[in-house]
Computed example of a mutant assay.
Amino acid sequence: MVGGGFMAEVHSRAIRAARAEPAGIVSSSPERGAEAAERLGIGRAYGSLEELLADDGIDVVHVTTPNALHAEQTRAVLASGKHVVCEKPLATTVADAEGMVAAAAATGRTATVPFVYRYHPLVREARSRFATGAAGSVLSINASYLQDWLLASADDNWRVDAAQGGRSRAFADIGSHLVDLVEFVSGDRVSRVAATTRTVFTERASHSGITTEDAVAVVIETRSGAIGTLLVSQVAPGRKNRLWLEIAGTAESVAFDQEQPETLWIGRRAGTTIVPRDADQLSEDAARLCVVPSGHPQGYQEAFTAFVADTYAAVAGETPEGLPRFADGLRAVRVTDAVLDSAESGTWIEMGTHDD
C-alpha cells in the first residue's frame, strides 16, 4: 500500500476480504507509515517507496496517495515488475495518464483503477439490459453525483489544492465515476460536452486562492446521437454520496441510485417494475456479484472487494468481465479535460475517437 489515508482503509479491508494479505505500507514519512501500519493492522511500514518496491515478496501495489503523485509512483511500481491498482483520477493530465497506460502495456502487468460502482450487482443488471437490447437504443441520459462534505467554507481537504489534486476537483474526484458509469451501462461514448463550473469558496480553512470547482453542470451528446445532462457537486446539502443515473432507451428507462443500491427502477410506458438485488432474477454477470443473500443490504465495501478480487483474478491470468483498467482511467481523464476546457472556453468540446 502506498498512502495511509481514508482510501487506504477501504483498500485494506477489500484486500483481506479478497483473500490477500496486506504485507506492508509506505506513507508520506516513516512516522506516518508506522502509524498507518498500526492503525490498519499491517505488519510492516517501509521507509520509502523504493524500499517497498525492492521487496520481492510484494506482488501488487495499491496507490492511494494524492492525485498529483499517481503518475510518478505508478510508473515506478510498473518498472519494478509489480502489478498495480491506482486510485482515481488516474492522473492530473492526459499526457501523464497516457504514459501510465503505455507503461502498463510495455510491462504486461495488470493495472486497474477503482471505478468500483461498476460492481454493484444492479449496475451490471442495468448494463445487461442495454447490451442485450432489452432497453432498446439510448435516447437520453440524466445523471448526477452529489455530496455535501465541502458545503461550508470551514470544510477543507488537500483535494481543493490544484497542486495536489490537479486542475479539476469535483469532476475529477467524483464526476469521473459518473462518466464511467454512464458509458459502462449504456455501452455508448460521450462525443462532445458543453460545461459550466462554479467555485463557491475561493478561501477555505487552510487554503486560499482556490481555483478548483465545487460544482459542474455538463450537457453531453453521445456517439449514437443521444443527449444528456450531468450534474456534479460537493456542496449539495444533505447529499452524502448520491450517485444517480437514469438512461432512457427506446423500449424502457433504467434508473440506479447508489444510495439505494438494492433496487433498480425499470420504466416502461406500461408495466413499470422495481427489480430487487436477487440473484434468481438477474443476468449472469449481475448474479455473480450477489455475495449477500437477497433482503440483506449489500453496498459499497462489497463492491470494492469485488473489484479487488477481480483485479487479483486478472493477475492470475483470468479476464474478469467489466474490470476497469488503466485505459478506462485514461478515458475519464480525457473527459475531465474536455469538461474543464469547455467551461473555460464557453464552447462545445469534441471528444474525438482516441479511445477506439
Rank of each mutant, 00 (worst) to 15 (best):
A95S: 13
I42H: 02
T336P: 07
T250D: 08
D257M: 04
S144W: 15
E35P: 03
L78T: 01
F184W: 09
T229H: 11
P320D: 05
E246S: 12
G271V: 12
E87P: 12
G322W: 04
R118S: 09
E318L: 14
T311Y: 00
I15R: 05
G249Q: 09
A251F: 10
Y312R: 12
R16I: 14
R242C: 08
V235R: 03
R192C: 12
G228H: 02
R198K: 10
E252Y: 02
G352F: 10
G299Q: 05
E72D: 12
I274A: 07
A332M: 11
T263P: 08
L53E: 00
T347I: 05
V94H: 00
H207N: 15
S168N: 05
I227W: 14
A154S: 10
I274Q: 08
A236R: 06
T74M: 06
A306P: 01
R13V: 00
D341N: 14
Q234M: 11
A306R: 01
A71D: 09
D173E: 12
T107R: 11
R118H: 13
R331Q: 04
T197N: 14
R239N: 15
F307H: 09
Q234T: 09
V335L: 08
A111Y: 11
T132I: 14
A162F: 07
L340S: 04
Q281P: 00
S12V: 14
F184G: 05
D161E: 09
V179K: 04
A104K: 05
H83K: 06
G295S: 03
M351V: 10
V116I: 14
E284D: 15
R189N: 15
E262V: 05
T74Y: 03
A20V: 02
E38N: 07
R13D: 02
R192P: 06
T319L: 06
D96L: 14
G133Q: 09
R198Y: 08
R159A: 09
G228I: 00
G209H: 13
A338D: 07
V190A: 07
A205K: 12
A270M: 11
A270C: 06
D155V: 06
V160I: 13
S27D: 15
S144P: 00
T212A: 01
G295N: 05
T347M: 13
Q147G: 14
R169T: 03
W149K: 11
A226Q: 01
I15T: 04
A103H: 06
A97D: 10
V85K: 06
L330G: 02
A316I: 05
N142C: 09
E72T: 12
D214I: 06
R129Q: 02
N67F: 04
T263I: 01
N241Q: 08
Y145D: 11
T196G: 14
A79C: 08
S128I: 07
V292D: 10
L150V: 07
G5K: 09
I227S: 11
F256V: 00
A126T: 08
A194E: 15
S233E: 07
E9I: 05
E203G: 09
L230W: 10
D214S: 09
E321G: 13
L122W: 08
F201W: 12
S80I: 08
F201R: 10
N157K: 10
A91F: 10
K82F: 13
D337Q: 13
A103R: 09
F256W: 00
S80A: 15
V254H: 01
T65N: 13
C86K: 07
